[in-house]
């Protein structure tokens, strides 16, 4: 088994695993981090598929901006929750 094939198999397995974990984990913060990790793995996958254009877009928009937006939304949710707790 060549090194490239081994890497591809590892990549495919970790893609599936991180995607599954991001959907199934009960904690929102962990799901977000897993989603960003999934995006970065997806970037590597596109690069391995010889599609550097899509890899660039995935890294910048998929993992970067979407991840930052989701983290921001999570922060806002936390703040709202803390506010609600304080009111009680």
């Amino acid at each position: 088994m060549s090194l490239g094939l081994g890497f591809d198999l590892l990549l495919a397995a970790s893609l599936l695993w991180s995607g599954w974990r991001a959907l199934s984990t009960p904690r929102l913060d962990r799901a977000l981090v897993l989603f960003i990790a999934f995006g970065l793995l997806m970037t590597l996958t596109w690069a391995r598929l010889a599609a550097p254009d899509i890899a660039l877009a995935e890294a910048a928009i998929g993992a970067g901006l979407t991840g930052a937006l989701l983290l921001d939304a999570f922060g806002a949710l936390q703040a709202k929750r803390a506010e609600a707790e304080a009111k009680k």
Binding site: P52, D53, A55, L56, A57, A60, I61, G64, L65, A68
Partner: peptide, 25 residues
């Protein structure tokens, strides 16, 4: 760089715009 590289190599307006946006974020 991504913008100017877009004419001959991977890159282009979308990627360059996303990097600009990431800088602002």
């Amino acid at each position: 760089y991504l913008l100017s590289a877009g004419t001959s190599a991977p890159g282009g307006a979308f990627q360059a715009g996303a990097v600009l946006a990431a800088a602002a974020v």
